[in-house]
């Protein structure tokens, strides 16, 4: 089977005020169907630019982006995308937020709501279906944003630091819960994080990006068994791979 997502020699630069900012430089990688690929890199290393390119909000200056083995110059709407901020529409209830994608595709409201209501309990959101996002805690908002992304029913999900703003406990809880969801639905997930342990704990493989302009400096196959459980972090392989990733990031161990 061809890779779900493939980047071949992708470069991107931004121009403005007489400055040229090179964000990505000759980035190539592929994600296999059903793979959980985590991506780490220093802050400001163009990780979000990478996602904006794959989603189709930006076009590469050089190189090619393929979906399902085919060159895909028009990509908007083809992959599920969850940006860093939850970006829930404040004027819509949780239920109406998560049905946004089907609504845009022209699915009837009733059908979209029915599907959403089935999934709400899985996200612990059933009591909040009619609440406005302002009434929700950070963890619940992220869950709602993730459900909205899942409701795009795309086979590829791009998650940009979804748990970055959460406290450590909530974050671990949501990591496990995300893995449960992934085991059930088996999408191809690209997951950006700046947390080395999170990258290892979640991913099949970890892609390490350099500082700007971002290049792929390392691809690491995670040596941990699935299903993952909290506590794995104590295993010697875990510590060894953390050290390996830190070294690739240029942080002395």
């Amino acid at each position: 089977m061809p890779p779900k997502v493939e980047l071949i020699g992708v470069s991107k630069a931004f121009h403005g005020d007489g400055l040229t900012l090179r964000a990505l430089d000759d980035v190539s990688f592929a994600a296999a169907p059903g793979e959980f690929l985590t991506i780490i890199g220093p802050s400001g290393s163009g990780k979000s630019t990478l996602f904006n390119l794959i989603v189709g909000l930006l076009q590469p200056d050089a190189g090619e982006i393929r979906l399902d083995g085919q060159a895909a110059p028009a990509r908007l709407g083809r992959v599920g995308y969850m940006p860093q901020k939850d970006l829930l529409l404040p004027w819509r209830s949780v239920l109406d937020n998560v049905t946004l994608a089907p609504e845009l595709r022209g699915v009837t409201r009733a059908a979209a709501r029915e599907r959403a209501r089935e999934l709400l309990p899985l996200f612990g959101l059933e009591t909040f279906a009619d609440a406005y996002p302002a009434a929700l805690s950070g963890g619940l908002r992220q869950r709602a944003a993730l459900l909205r992304t899942l409701m795009t029913e795309r086979e590829v999900l791009l998650l940009d630091e979804p748990f970055g703003a959460l406290d450590a406990l909530t974050r671990r809880e949501l990591q496990d819960w995300l893995l449960t969801l992934w085991t059930r639905f088996r999408q191809t997930i690209l997951f950006i994080t700046h947390d080395v342990e999170e990258a290892l704990y979640l991913g099949d493989r970890v892609l390490v990006l350099s500082a700007r302009p971002a290049r792929v400096v390392k691809t690491l196959t995670v040596a941990l068994p699935r299903p993952r459980r909290q506590g794995l972090q104590a295993l010697p392989e875990f510590g060894r791979q953390v050290a390996e990733l830190l070294e690739a990031l240029g942080i002395a161990v």
């Binding site: 909000l57 908007l76 709407g77 995308y81 901020k85 970006l87 946004l100």
Partner: peptide, 20 residues
């Protein structure tokens, strides 16, 4: 960012107007 998110979801200019 909200506008960008809707574009990423494949929304048309009209849908973005109405929804955002």
């Amino acid at each position: 960012d909200l506008v960008a998110l809707l574009r990423a979801m494949g929304a048309t200019r009209g849908q973005i107007w109405r929804l955002v």
